[in-house]
């Protein structure tokens, strides 16, 4: 066990005793994922009669850096709690870390059983019953999410379409490699900006196949709230339709598992708000451009020497996937 893990184990044991229904200790501490500045751990809080499966999301002490678009972990915890109160399936937040806990910033939440790996969700027999329900459920969940009154929310970045486009255009320009298809997409997005006077709501920001915990009956939890912001609610409906998140099932636009109409029906049922399919398409185009720019930028870590892995290098050659998707959206050939 590394020193870091040993000190986390000791700190987390104290937290469990003080804040998790007087657990007598913790066990099975395992690192799940995360970069240098943000970590996800699984562990069990042990009680006399049972143990509770939990997740810790934390930024270790001394790590203050976070990406400009990510919300602080305590904001993420409060969003998950608010979403839960609204009837959105989410894990239960058990404790938000305090400075005197001594193990950094973050929070502890219940571990929801299920699957997040998109290809398994789309392929495995276990999810065969769930798949036909998912598009409608996603719509219902987003309808609830977008109905949360803004005054109930913690402070969030506001990011309407114009700001998103400018952000990605700046990143693209700084990278300084010509992509005529991205130029076409930027122009189209700028020329077709949706009117700003319409709805401004909470936006999850990364609502897609891969960030949803799926069980045999459908969505069990909405995860990864770190890109939450306020803006155009249609952003979330467009993002889940981006071809990258269909994982090969190109004819099932919603996450590779369903149809737009089913998602829209679910959405209208819980939000009472009409879906504007053209506006959803606008955000699908924006999302496709965004993912293309992000793939392109992966090359920077490789070229700078920060990450010399072949995996990192090869992702740069996936930017073109988004170019064909953009052409199919913006310059469709007959019959499309």
């Amino acid at each position: 066990m590394s020193d870091d893990q040993a000190s986390l184990l000791a700190g987390l044991t104290q937290v469990a005793k003080a804040h998790l229904d007087q657990a007598y200790g913790i066990s099975d501490l395992k690192r799940l994922s995360g970069g240098a500045s943000q970590e996800t751990w699984a562990f069990e809080a042990d009680h006399a009669t049972h143990s509770e499966a939990l997740i810790l999301r934390r930024r270790p002490p001394g790590m203050t850096e976070r990406s400009a678009s990510a919300v602080p972990l305590e904001t993420e915890a409060s969003l998950i709690e608010i979403a839960g109160l609204t009837g959105i399936p989410v894990p239960r937040v058990r404790h938000v870390l305090r400075p005197d806990d001594g193990i950094g910033e973050g929070f502890i939440m219940g571990r929801v059983e299920g699957e997040t790996i998109a290809r398994k969700i789309l392929r495995d027999e276990e999810y065969a019953q769930a798949r036909p329900k998912l598009a409608r459920q996603c719509g219902e969940i987003l309808g609830l999410l977008h109905s949360i009154p803004l005054e109930n929310l913690p402070e969030l970045r506001h990011s309407p379409a114009a700001d998103e486009i400018k952000h990605y255009r700046d990143l693209y320009k700084a990278h300084n490699h010509p992509h005529p298809v991205f130029e076409i997409a930027f122009r189209w997005l700028e020329d077709n900006l949706p009117p700003q006077d319409e709805a401004n709501t909470l936006v999850h920001g990364d609502f897609r196949n891969g960030n949803l915990m799926i069980g045999a009956n459908g969505v069990r939890a909405v995860l990864d709230w770190e890109l939450a912001h306020t803006g155009d609610p249609m952003e979330d409906l467009g993002w889940i339709c981006v071809n990258a998140w269909r994982f090969g099932n190109i004819d099932a636009p919603v996450g590779g598992f369903g149809q737009r109409e089913d998602m829209f029906e679910g959405y209208e049922a819980t939000s009472g708000r009409k879906v504007d399919p053209a506006r959803v398409k606008y955000w699908e185009v924006l999302g496709t451009m965004k993912w293309g720019v992000m793939c392109m930028l992966m090359v920077q870590a490789f070229k700078s020497g920060a990450d010399r892995s072949v995996e990192r290098a090869a992702i740069g050659r996936r930017s073109s996937e988004n170019e064909i998707d953009l052409l199919r959206l913006l310059a469709p050939l007959g019959g499309n």
Partner: peptide
Amino acid sequence: HLWQTTLSKLAIDQPGYSGYRRGLEEWQTS
């Protein structure tokens, strides 16, 4: 021009990509 250029890029980069396979069909049909 953009279609032809992009199809050639993908024939090199990711010939198994769903969007490429569908785009290529659409190109050939049209």
